[in-house]
Design a protein around this nucleic acid. Structure first.
Lengths: 233, 233
DNA sequence: CTGGCTAAGTGACTACAATCACATAATAAC
DNA sequence: GTTATTATGTGATTGTAGTCACTTAGCCAG
């Protein structure tokens, strides 16, 4: 499907580029839609595209030697993934799966590399992005160190709360929340355990489900306290 | 202490730089030695140096909210750490601790940034290095997904085996191996559990201790099979 | 509206690693 | 050489999350 420069400029990382560059990139890019569960990027393959997420939620997943699924990170709209090859021409290290129906824009790596030559700014941006990824992986790893299981779940949930609500501790909504299973593999837990934690959070009226696509966070302050371990579940 | 250009060229990442550049960098750099347990980089601080490791072994560590220690990665001689700020000017995300007495070279970030302007090659190299770090963090995360504890320990041990021995499955030696505790925090295990796994590995004559500073890997093939889950301990 | 399917809730049971509490060994410090 | 300190080894006990085996709910397609 055709990509317009306007679509590309919806992404914070591309927005600063001049219109001419955006037009050129747009011509070489394509919109790709995936159904829930669709494989967006394949591990071990030299994917020659960077995948920008327009709508929906993605999850980076890997598999252990014995076939167990491991959740690595979530990708939110406006962000991108699969950019590692931009730096080292290596293969994509992990799978990226669509958690919901998604709309993505695939931009060829080679075109992006061309653009970085003309616009070092983009290179800088990519570097910052990669640094952010390292910081996020590090944070996620620390999370796994928590011996208290409910705290782990609450921390993960906390990371899914929109920024503004995190600031003001207002009630908020998480759109298309991951399933219990998807959370479980991120946290090295079983699906049942995550389910039991949610059960407690719901009876305590800290969160409330509203269909599959909405999770209301009613008591943001309580969630924060639980995430920080200041309160036990 | 004074740094010579020769010392700097011992690092694969700096070796390709022209002698004049190396001399300039050498003048601005300093050798710093740390005792075992010394704090090489501090979390949360904007460290204005990239730390190149000449001798010994470092460990990146973080702490969970409840104070539990979490091991993130090991740094081997020839490699460097603390480079994240080069990309985003952000604070150092984790502590870096000396596992043995170490000799490091601290190169000011600002000098390195200057060099990247003249030598895009270095920029490319730094990018590749950061990408490698992401790959390593990802691999380490997958490791934690392993439900079998001894496999986890064997995998980690396998990563410490020198490259050439990994290829040829020859007997080899791990210098200054991490303590059981240091391995434990990398793998989300208790010290005792690691100790028990080592006990089995030793009675099976797969590894052999030789003082504090040497760990002989006698049966590399068996270690590999255990790491891959092809054999149970 | 009715299957078919995926997600989520729940009890019972169990395995297994954490914890505790030491003993012992190996280094480092004096 | 002797003491202090840190690393390691080991048994006993316990808590807790995983697993199994279902049930129930929610969603979508026809």
């Amino acid at each position: 499907m055709q990509v317009t420069p306007e679509l590309l400029s919806a992404f914070p990382s591309l927005k600063p580029l001049p219109p001419a560059t955006l037009s050129r990139l747009a011509q070489e890019s394509s919109v790709r839609k995936f159904a829930r569960r669709g494989v967006v990027l394949t591990a071990g393959v030299r994917e020659e595209f960077v995948c920008f997420l327009f709508e929906g939620r993605l999850q980076g997943v890997d598999f252990t030697i014995d076939g167990r699924e491991v959740g690595l990170y979530f990708v939110e709209p406006g962000d991108f993934c699969g950019e590692l090859g931009m730096f080292d021409h290596g293969p994509q290290p992990e799978f990226v799966i669509a958690l919901t129906a998604v709309v993505t824009v695939f931009v060829p790596m080679e075109s992006l590399r061309q653009v970085t030559l003309e616009h070092p700014m983009l290179l800088k941006l990519l570097g910052e992005r990669l640094a952010a990824r390292v910081r996020q992986l590090t944070r996620q790893r620390s999370l796994l160190g928590l011996p208290n299981i409910s705290q782990r779940v609450c921390c993960q949930l906390w990371l899914l709360v929109p920024d503004d609500a995190r600031q003001n501790l207002q009630a908020s909504v998480i759109n298309n929340p991951p399933t219990h299973m998807e959370i479980a593999i991120m946290l090295n837990l079983s699906r049942e355990t995550v389910s039991r934690v949610f059960q407690i959070l719901q009876t305590r009226q800290i969160v409330r489900r509203d269909g599959t696509s909405l999770l209301h966070v009613s008591d943001t302050a309580a969630l924060k306290r639980l995430a920080e371990g200041k309160e036990e579940l």
